[in-house]
Simulated assay, not measured.
Amino acid sequence: MYNKNSEEIKQLITNYFDGIFLGDVEKLKACFHENTYIYGDIKDIDYLKSVDEYLDGVKNRQSPKDLNEKLKMKIIGIDILGKMAMAKLHVPMLGYNYYDYVSLAKINNHWTIVNKIFTHVD
């Protein structure tokens, strides 16, 4: 059954994947609320950055596309309850096997990522 919220969230996540893969900071920035924090665990090393710090890192690295990688990112699942949602994503890139959990909220009738946690799994 068609669900407008699930379609809007899938489009947001597609934009998120494209932004990461292409290194398109403006496209990626549009996916996040300005107060988002990103926490990760990369091979037992903690990663904690504001969305601006995260975007600066994306801006200053080679993109997966520039490194001739194939886009293999995918949505594993989305759970929507009212104006909030959680998505589990598989984001393999740059030699890492990342899994992201993104929290989303519908703010001013627009879905946005308000939190991101991620880890690398061997």
Rank of each mutant, 00 (worst) to 15 (best):
N60R: 05
I13K: 01
G23A: 07
L89D: 00
K116Y: 03
K29T: 07
E7N: 04
D44C: 14
L67S: 03
T14W: 12
A105F: 15
Y98G: 11
S50V: 02
N15T: 08
L94T: 05
K43P: 06
Y101N: 08
I20N: 08
D41L: 09
G57S: 06
G40D: 05
D18L: 05
I42Q: 12
K74R: 14
H33E: 05
I107K: 02
K70S: 10
H33D: 12
L28Y: 00
K74H: 15
D52P: 08
Y101L: 12
I107C: 02
S50A: 00
G95K: 12
L55W: 03
L71R: 07
Y16E: 03
N5D: 15
N97K: 04
L28G: 01
W111G: 00
F21H: 09
S103H: 13
M1I: 13
T36K: 03
N68S: 06
D79A: 06
Q11P: 13
S6C: 09
L55Q: 02
G57Q: 09
M1V: 07
D66L: 06
Y2K: 13
Y98T: 12
V25L: 06
C31N: 02
K29P: 09
H110V: 13
K116C: 02
K106Y: 14
K83N: 15
G23Y: 03
L94V: 11
I113Q: 00
L28K: 10
N3W: 13
K27E: 15
N15A: 15
K43N: 12
L22Q: 15
I78W: 08
K106R: 07
N35W: 03
Y98P: 14
L89K: 00
F17W: 00
Y99T: 04
V25C: 04
A30W: 02
I80S: 00
D56T: 14
E7D: 05
N35P: 15
N35G: 10
D122C: 09
K27L: 09
G77E: 07
T119W: 11
I9W: 01
K65I: 09
R61M: 12
